[in-house]
């Protein structure tokens, strides 16, 4: 079986709030199933080949680091990343990475900073930081929903356009903008979320959905059952225990 090719974009700069846990989750779940993978780190000054990867992770960073890579991302890698999105490469983008995939970021002074434009969302700077536990119900066509738990920490308000679907509905917390009850975005195989925590370890269903889509794109005959079930006891407990700490009933 061919190795699943995973790419971590700017691992040395976008490495905030434990987002690398998402990669640990993907890689371990492949390892436990005996499925081979290859993890590549791509950072400043390096080319991104849209044909070279099946699954790409883009995390968030601090303002200083994000400003450093803005030009590299837009000019050096921008068109290749958009090309990969159109070829249905699976993406997971968290927080700052999510914002950068969008069309633009509007600063507090009203200045428009162009972003990648890979997905139809716009982010506006906000004064008050939205910090806290985030619980949402993912809305994927292919999976029954569940209560996903994470932690958000952002001041940008993201507004999804008509070209994307929200990743889920907010149960507790702010989500995209604290107003419209949406959290994250889905476009083709691009999954975006404000949830740190990390997101995938506590939400193994989502991790497996990403893996399934990446394999299915490689080999159309690949079926969901080809990802053998894992016990996921700790995963389940970590998810439900935070719900009970937040006094949220498991049935939502």
């Amino acid at each position: 079986m061919e190795a699943l090719r995973i790419c971590h974009l700017y691992p040395d700069l976008l490495n905030l709030y434990g987002d690398r846990g998402n990669l640990l989750s993907l890689c371990q779940r492949l390892k436990w199933r005996g499925l081979p993978y290859q993890l590549t780190r791509i950072s400043l000054g390096e080319d991104f080949d849209p044909e070279a990867f099946d699954l790409v992770f883009l995390g968030g960073g601090q303002d200083y680091e994000q400003a450093l890579l803005q030009e590299d991302l837009l000019i050096k890698k921008g068109s290749a990343i958009k090309e990969a999105v159109l070829q249905d490469v699976v993406f997971l983008c968290i927080c700052g990475g999510y914002q950068m995939m969008g069309k633009a970021y509007i600063t507090a002074e009203g200045r428009r900073i162009e972003c990648l434009g890979a997905i139809d969302v716009i982010t506006q700077a906000g004064k008050k930081r939205m910090i806290g536990n985030l619980v949402f119900k993912p809305q994927l066509d292919t999976l029954p929903t569940w209560l996903a738990a994470g932690f958000e920490n952002h001041s940008g308000r993201t507004w999804p356009g008509s070209g994307v679907k929200p990743l889920g509905r907010v149960v507790k917390g702010f989500g995209n903008n604290g107003k419209d009850g949406t959290e994250g975005a889905i476009y083709r195989n691009v999954f975006c979320s404000y949830s740190h925590g990390s997101l995938l370890p506590k939400n193994p269903r989502l991790a497996d959905e990403l893996l399934f889509r990446a394999f299915a794109r490689m080999r159309p005959s690949f079926k969901r059952q080809d990802l053998s079930p894992l016990a996921d006891v700790f995963e389940e407990k970590a998810g439900t225990s935070i719900l009970s700490l937040l006094h949220i009933r498991p049935d939502g």
Partner: peptide, 23 residues
Amino acid sequence: GRRKWDMALRLKYSGFDEGDIHV
């Protein structure tokens, strides 16, 4: 601790066996 399951999960993904972690 309050987030013992998060801690247990972290240890599991670092390579420890679930059965070797006493929660």
